[in-house]
Structure formats: C-alpha cells, structure tokens
Design a protein around this nucleic acid. Structure first.
Lengths: 256, 256
DNA sequence: CACCGCCATGTTGCATGCAGAAATGTGTCT
DNA sequence: AGACACATTTCTGCATGCAACATGGCGGTG
C-alpha cells in the first residue's frame, strides 16, 4: 500500500522549484503553525529576509494566500493574517458537509460505474478492521484510506466545478476532515466516531449504488458533522488544541 | 502638487488607481467579451502592449484570474483561457442553488430580525408590480431589486465563509443569476419566469420568518434552477447567446 | 497643555534588466 | 524524404532600483 511517506524530504521540506511555490508553501505552513498571529501585518521586506525569496514571487504568493482566505488585504495596501472564530469553524464544516453531500448526490444521480463502486467497497473493507484497533499506525492508515474514499467520491461526482469549490473550502484551516481527528487518536470517543464514520461510508456506497441521491446527500452531511464532534472533543481536552494546525488563528472567546 | 497624472487617461472605464486592479478588470472584461478564446495562451508581452500595464501588475492579475477560474496555468508556465461546457454551466447553477439554499436555511435556523424580514418584504412589494410589466426599464429595476434581495439574504445567513464560497462560484461566468436573464427581457417566457421567481421570493421570506429551514433551502434551490430555464431559452433562440457575457468561452458541442 | 502641520522613515506598487528554459526553425545526416 | 541534433528566438520567472504613498514622531504654535 505504501502508506509511509514519513521521511519525506529530509533537507528542504519544499522540494518545489519555483520561488513562488516555495514562498506559498512556506508561508502557508508558517501561518498555520502560528508563527504569525491574526492581525499581524505581512510586511514584505521582513518576509523576504525570513523566507529567502525575493519580493516578486513573495507578492504572488501573498495574492494566492488572500484568495485562499488565510490573508486579508488592507485598503491601504498590504496584507494581514486573518482571524477565525469558532463560528467560522462550525460554518466551514457545515458548508463542507453541504458540498460533499452534493458530490454524493451527483454520484448517485449520475450513475456510478461498477468499477467505482467496487473501489469504494474495497476501501471500506480495508477500513473495517482498522476501526477496531487503537494504535497510531492503524489510525494513520485509516486517515489515508479515508482520504482515498473521499477523493474517489469526488471523482465520481464528475463535476470539476464542485471539486474546485470543495477544495476552496478545504483550503481553510479546520475545514479539513483530518484536521481535527489525528490529535486524539488514543481517546475512546474517537474510536466510537470511527465506527460511526465507517457506517456512514458503507451507507454512502449503498445509496449511490441504488441511485438514492437524497439519502447519499443526508449521510454525507451527517458524516461531515462528525468533525464538529471532533472539534468539541479537542476543545474539551485542554492542550489538544495546540496540536491542531492553525489553532493560533482562532479567537477562543467562548462565543458561538 | 498635482504634478503627475496629467496624462492619466480620464476616459478610461477603469477608474481604479492601482495598475494591478486595472489589469484585472480589463483582462476579465476582455476574456468574457470573447477577445480571447479558450485555449489561447496569455503571453505576457503582448498583453503588456494591449493593456498598457507593466508585466509585474499583469502577473498579479493573472494569478488572481487563475483563482477565479477564468484561467488555467500550464505545467510549463504561463496561462491559457479556460473552456467551459454546458455541463459546467449546469453544475455552476446547481452549486449556486445548493449554497444559496444553505444561506436561506442559515437565515431561517439562526433567526431573522424583524428589521431584516421587513426589508425583504419591502423589496418583494416593490418587485411585485414590476413582474407584470414588460418594458426594459422595469426589467432593469427588477434586476437591481433582485440583487438587493439576495444580498440581504446572504447577510442574514451571517456566515462570512458562506459568502466567500458563493462569491467564488459567482465569479464564474453563467453562474450569476443575472447573467442569463437580461438578454431576453422581451420574450413572453421571461415574464412567466419572473412571476415564478417572485413567488419564490415570497415563499422564502415566509419560510425564514417561520424558521422553516428545509423549506427555505428547497425554495432557494428551485429558485436557482430558474437560471437553467433561462439558459435553455437563450440556447433555443439563436443569436441571443452572443449577448451573454462569456459566451465565447463555451464549447457548444451538443453534449450534456 | 493641546492641537496642528511638517518631516523622516518605512512600505507598497511598479518598471525593467537579466538569466534560464521551453518552443521553434534549420540544417545535416542517414 | 524523414528524422535528429543544434541554433535561434521567444517566453517566463526572478531580482532589484525607483518613486509615490501612508505612517508616525517631533516640533512649533495657539
């Protein structure tokens, strides 16, 4: 299965060759890691020094990051790091659920090939034994298979536009399904969540095979909401939150 | 003072002051108007000549247009104009319906203020007599009020993320509600569509006021599908299509 | 003491020169 | 005549210098 990849790129993490890509990846990582706090001004000259790229590719990266939603442009010029609230997380997950539900519905309505259905079932069969195990390695394999499942599902929707839209939402922190799940692999609640998630996947394949679009939609929405449960688990266990990528961008005022 | 700018084209349609914005607006307009065809390479030097801006702001605009979806970046570098199919239009409208349905559901679930509800009803009352008239001026007023209605609804959803997502979809041609509606104002079918659309708006306000999220969602989705009807009308009347902005980006192979 | 204007500084936006790479055309060899 | 290698041209990507703008501090004045 070649799930490994843990030793990817020992020297420079960013193996890409254009300076703009380097700046983009590096900046995204640094923002999500909390190196810059919300509201921090992203002045170009200091960034040039830190990132080791020139101003030209840096500015291209800044434009991209604004489109991704991590930066906000000031009217007077320049960019600052965006701030996210708990309500933003909730909405991001809800919107992701709606869009993935639409993908599942499309897959159901437009008819899935036997080959695609078989691929989904194969993934589910591989996942099934993993949800009963609690070791970290199984968890990682689960995450990988989970991503494969969703990727296949998105392909089956046959809608480049829907893919683009979902990827746009996923570019925000916290919206990603795996963003909130890896941190608490050892907790008992997480195992229960995995069991439910697996059931959702099985139901999704059934619904798509039967061309039941509404059921597929509903299951996918509920499936995304598991991330909300994950969020609550992370928030209820002090200390776990710091492990979540992008946690530094959160305002933890107890609003909702 | 007032030293510079004496030669700054006063008649330029784009009154914005930064060169990047100028390039962005001008390029977007030219692409949608069909000055560039799908697959055309957007070489920088010719564009510099045509747009009158330097390469640096031009490249920033190209990055933005790629994020908007009008351009596609080549692996070897550079950009080409994207191509859209009828399936893309259909999906764009469907996805917009899903997202606006979510906005309406949010507004219903989260509770609308009397003030917001009154504003929506006021708009609807102003629209109501317009749907019975067929002159172009009434049509323009209708479009303006329609946009105000949707803007208000989006505000009532109270979700910056949902707004961002919807605007991302709307940045594509054909996805906009008004994109396909202005061209056939004089056709009798369009009047019927307006009547149905008005009914949708009334139902939306009712559902939101009663906090009936599912009903609001359903109405908004069906409302968006009116654009599909508009699309079919435009496609069935030869010659109308050329008036639609971005029509040149379409492949009119009779696929679906 | 408060407020206003001015200057200094830092920052963004822009233009252009240069280098490397891809694409294109040409000539030669088989 | 076709194909391959090489040269030329065009293009993108990058770095840097320059100018205008915004910002903040300081001093002067009411």
């Amino acid at each position: 299965m070649a799930v490994g990849n843990t030793l990817r790129a020992p020297m420079s993490v960013h193996a890409n060759r254009t300076q703009m890509t380097r700046a983009l990846l590096s900046l995204r990582e640094r923002i999500l890691s909390g190196e810059f706090k919300p509201g921090d001004r992203m002045s170009e000259l200091p960034l040039v020094e830190r990132l080791g790229v020139s101003r030209t590719p840096l500015r291209l990266a800044l434009v991209s990051l604004e489109h991704e939603g991590l930066l906000r442009s000031l009217p007077a010029g320049g960019y600052v790091v965006r701030e996210f609230t708990r309500a933003d997380i909730r909405d991001a997950i809800e919107i992701r659920g709606v869009l993935e539900g639409t993908a599942a519905r499309f897959a159901a309505e437009r008819g899935a090939s036997r080959r695609d259905l078989r691929a989904l079932r194969t993934i589910n069969d591989s996942v099934e034994p993993l949800v009963r195990r609690a070791d970290y390695e199984s968890f990682e394999r689960y995450v990988a298979l989970n991503e494969a499942f969703h990727e296949r599902l998105l392909r089956m929707a046959e809608s480049p536009l829907l893919r683009r839209t979902i990827e746009g939402v996923l570019s925000l922190p916290f919206a990603s399904p795996s963003a909130l799940v890896l941190q608490h692999a050892q907790l008992p609640e997480s195992r229960e969540i995995l069991i439910v998630a697996h059931r959702h996947h099985v139901g999704l394949v059934e619904a798509i095979a039967q061309r039941e679009g509404a059921r597929a939609d509903g299951i996918a929405r509920e499936h995304a909401r598991l991330s909300l449960t994950n969020l609550e688990i992370v928030l209820s266990h002090q200390g776990l939150l710091d492990e979540v990528p992008g946690a530094a961008l959160l305002t933890l005022a107890p609003d909702d």
